Amino acid sequence: MPKSLSLRSGLGSILFWSVISAAFIGPGSVTACTMAGAQYGLHLLWVLTFATFGTVWLQEAASRITIATGRDLGQTIALANRQRGKTVPVLLFLAVWLGCAAYQAGNILGAVSGLVLLTGWSAKWLTLLVGLICLILLAIGSTQWIANFLGIIVFAMGGAFAYVAFGASPPAGEVLKALVVPAVPAGSLLLINSLIGTTIVPYNLFFGSGITQGQTLSEMRLGIWIAVLLGGFISVVLLIAGLLVTGGFSFVNMATVLNDRLGEWGGFLFAFGLFAAGFASSLTAPLAAAVTARSLLGWSAHSWQYRLVLVGVIAVGLAFGLSEYNPVTIIVVVQAINGILLPAVTLFLFLAVNDRNLIPAEYRNSWAQNVAMVSVVVISLLLGGWNVWLAIQKLLI
C-alpha cells in the first residue's frame, strides 16, 4: 500500500528538493534576470514562466523514472540505447559536460565578482583562490554543509530582492500580462536563451534523478512543485528589481540600487549573495558532471576518469575566470549555451520516460505530460536554433 503524504514528510520533501531551486539561483540567474529587467523591462517575464514550469515537468519526469525502476536517468538512457553501444551515452555525457563547464565559467566569475565588491582585491588572485578551494573541498568530499549554508545566504539575497522589487511598484496588471504574453524585443534572443538555460538546468535532471530514491511519487511531486516555484518566484523578483537599474547593467550598479533601497547592508548582502551563489554552484557543477558520467558511463566514483571530469570542469571555469573578458557578458553567453543544449537532453528524457520496455504503464507520461515536454523541446529548439542562425549570419557578413 503506498505511503501517505504526512505534513512532516511533505515539509521534508520540500527542503530536500530545495537543492534544485538553489542550483538554478546562481550568478547566471542574478545576472540574466536583472539584466533582462534593466534592458527590456517586463517584456521577458514570460520566459521565466515557461522555464519554471518546464523545470517542474522535466524534473518530475526524470525523478519518476527513478521511483519506477530504481535506476537514475543516466542508467535508464544507457540501458534503453544499449544496442548502440556507448555512442549515445558518450555523446550525451559530452553535451552535459560542456554545459557544466560553461556553467562553471559563470559560477567562478560570479563568485569572484562578489568577492571583488566585498574586498576590492585583485580578481586574478581571487579566481585562483576560489578554484583551489573548490578542488580541495571536492577532493575531501566535505561540500554539503558549505553548500547548504551558502544556499541559505542566496535565498536571503532573494528576500532582499523581493523587497526591492515591490519598491519598484510596476502595475500588477502589467506584471500578470507579461508573465503569460510572449514578446521578443529586438536584440533579446541571447538573453531569452540565457533565462531558459539558467532555469532549466540540464545537469539538474541527472542530479535530481539520482537523489530521488526512497521517496514516494506524492512526496517527490510536492517537493519539486513548491521548491521550483519558489526558485521561479525569486527569478521573477530579480527581473523586476532590475527595472531600477540605470546607466546600463553591472554588478556595481545593482549593488548601488540595493544600497539606495536598503542601506549599506543591502549592497553588502548582494555582494556576499553573489559570492555565495557562485561558490555553491562552483561545487555543484563539477560534481554534477562527474555524477552524470558515473550514471551514463558506469565510472566508479574512485576512478581516475571520474576525478578527471571534476578537474576538467574546474579548469574551464578557471580559464574563463583568468581571462580579461567582461564577467557579465561571459555569464550571459554560457547560460545561452545551456539553453541551446537543453533540447538534446530533453529528447532522451522524453524517449526514456515513454519506453514501454523499461517503464511500467502507471509511471509513463500521460498525453498531457507528453504535450508539456514536447513544448519545452520545440520552443527551446526554435529559440536556440534561431540564436545559432543569427550568430552564423553575423559571421558571414
Rank of each mutant, 00 (worst) to 15 (best):
P2M: 12
L11Q: 12
I14F: 09
I14M: 12
L15I: 12
I20N: 06
G26Q: 15
G28T: 02
C33V: 04
C33W: 01
G37T: 01
A38F: 08
H43P: 00
W46I: 07
V56R: 04
W57I: 05
Q59G: 05
E60C: 04
S63R: 10
T66C: 13
A68R: 15
R71D: 07
Q83H: 09
K86Y: 05
V88N: 03
V88A: 02
L92C: 07
V96Q: 06
W97D: 05
Y103T: 14
L115F: 04
K124M: 08
K124T: 12
V130N: 03
L132W: 02
I136D: 02
I136Y: 11
A139D: 05
F149M: 11
G158S: 08
G159Y: 15
G167P: 14
V175F: 06
V175S: 05
V184F: 14
S188R: 08
N193H: 07
N193I: 11
I196R: 13
P202R: 00
L217G: 12
G231Y: 09
V236A: 10
G242F: 00
V245Y: 06
F249I: 11
S250V: 08
V252H: 04
N253L: 03
V257R: 09
L262D: 03
L269W: 10
G273E: 01
L274C: 11
G278I: 02
A280W: 02
S281H: 07
S282L: 07
T284C: 07
A285F: 02
A289D: 07
T292K: 01
R294N: 11
S295Q: 12
S303F: 04
R307W: 15
R307I: 03
R307H: 15
V309E: 01
V311F: 12
V311H: 09
N326A: 08
T329S: 14
T329H: 03
V334G: 01
L341M: 12
L342T: 00
F348W: 13
V353T: 09
R356G: 13
W367R: 15
M373L: 13
V376M: 06
V376G: 04
V378N: 07
S380Q: 03
L382P: 00
G385A: 06
V388P: 00
I392A: 13
I397C: 01
